[in-house]
């Protein structure tokens, strides 16, 4: 017969919740962020909707792009609202809120621009590489070595060579027709993950520093 009927302060001491903050949450520019949106709660309460729907943060235009919610903020809020609740924290101690604004510029123009940039750039890079290592001479030499004939333009060798470059790159990134050769993440996905992880870590540290500065300014 436990649970909280009125203000939550009627709860017995044994009421305990386990709180696990989500690492990264996307929110809308004017969203009221509730606890269950940024955290996974496990409790033995019969009715924990009030807990789950507790507003942790109201997103405002001053928030720019990222907000870091520290677990101490959440615990402070919980203690104020539900003084008898025991909170056990598991997992990450910060949650990063990413505010997703509706994009203004048409994205497909960007895609075309970047696509052409990469296309022309990588084409030029491979040509520079070939010039750099005298690939033409190497191909002539290989052609002569294999067939015994001299050939100034060994296209028999060079056309499959060119196609092979594409095959090799796709093989490395394991993106053959989107169908996985195996379940493991590709190097690109890992790289993407590491990059995101570094950004998150930077944001967490930086935001904490900013909070300290603000406190100093106030005193």
């Amino acid at each position: 017969m436990s649970g909280f009927e009125k203000d939550g302060d009627t709860m017995p001491k044994s009421e305990r919740i386990y709180l696990r903050l989500r690492h990264r949450v996307q929110v809308k520019p004017d969203q009221r962020v509730t606890l269950n949106q940024i955290a996974k709660l496990v409790s033995n309460l019969e009715d924990d909707r009030r807990l789950e729907n507790m507003v942790v943060h109201q997103v405002s235009p001053q928030d720019k792009h990222l907000i870091v919610i520290d677990v101490t903020q959440v615990v402070a809020l919980l203690q104020k609202r539900f003084p008898d609740l025991e909170v056990e924290i598991i997992g990450p101690t910060q949650s990063i809120l990413e505010i997703v604004y509706p994009s203004k510029s048409p994205r497909f123009l960007w895609v075309i621009f970047v696509w052409l940039l990469l296309f022309i750039g990588s084409g030029l890079t491979i040509m520079n590489f070939h010039e750099d290592v005298s690939m033409q001479e190497v191909h002539q030499r290989i052609f002569e070595m294999l067939t015994g004939e001299k050939e100034e333009y060994p296209l028999w060798l060079q056309i499959p060579y060119s196609l092979g470059i594409g095959v090799g790159m796709i093989l490395f990134f394991n993106h053959l027709f989107k169908k996985r050769l195996n379940e493991e993440p590709s190097p690109l996905e890992l790289e993407m993950f590491n990059y995101q992880q570094s950004i998150d870590q930077y944001v967490i540290m930086n935001e904490n520093k900013e909070a300290q500065n603000k406190l100093d300014e106030r005193s």
């Binding site: 028999w156 060579y161 090799g168 790159m169």
Partner: peptide, 23 residues
């Protein structure tokens, strides 16, 4: 003194390796 077709295969393999390097 191998037949000319061999160079097709050789080129493909050489290219794949360079593609792996580039990637």
């Amino acid at each position: 003194h191998l037949p000319k077709d061999i160079t097709l295969l050789f080129g493909l393999f050489a290219g794949m390796f360079v593609g792996l390097l580039a990637a």
